[in-house]
Design a protein around this nucleic acid. Sequence first.
DNA 1: CGGTATCCGCTGTGATACTG
DNA 2: CAGTATCACAGCGGATACCG
Lengths: 110, 110
Amino acid sequence: MEKELTPTSAADGVEQALKVLEGKWKLLIMFHLFGGKLLRFSELERAIPAITQKMLTQQLRQMEADGVVRRILHHQLPPKVEYGLTEWGQALCPVLDALLKWADLRDDLR
Amino acid sequence: MEKELTPTSAADGVEQALKVLEGKWKLLIMFHLFGGKLLRFSELERAIPAITQKMLTQQLRQMEADGVVRRILHHQLPPKVEYGLTEWGQALCPVLDALLKWADLRDDLR
DNA sequence: CGGTATCCGCTGTGATACTG
DNA sequence: CAGTATCACAGCGGATACCG
């Protein structure tokens, strides 16, 4: 089925997509997880030294709720939690590439 | 020359690109201007009834400064101003398409 | 180890009034 | 017609302390 595409509906669709990326640390977290990598909470903290625990938790929770990140809980002592991208999260990679290329285009066009 | 691409530099590049799109009304304005359309200030106001004059001015000024929108001033009475996309602005169209498709993918993947 | 809870400042947005 | 100026407010993110 075809969707009708008015300026309003198109802008709305893109905004839905962008909302998933909004948040000061989400892109950085994603780029650390691309390639199917799994990282523990503490490994993410070390990979992103400037982030606070609060923000790391908050951003991960939102990304999980949005379906880009999955949380893998290993029941053991001490507790171990790993984070990775979902299939949908990995599908974002080419889109982000396109955005990077668009940013580069600016220099070429002027 | 090749750029080295660390998670940090990649996230940074994407953030630069996204900053241009941030702002409550910018996407909506862009979608009204795609296809080489030129619209007057008052036409944009009518096309986007919920926007205030302040926000329309502010978003247009920022988009102009960022290089996605161009302002065409016709010296006549009464004054006439038209807004359109720059070449770089129009180059964003396929990228936004990719984002739309990514958003649609979510439903397919679960 | 992997989190929560709380307080607080800053920036983006809205409402409204005014202007060349 | 096409703006500018001012005030008010909500939500994001930072700092810090505490918890199972």
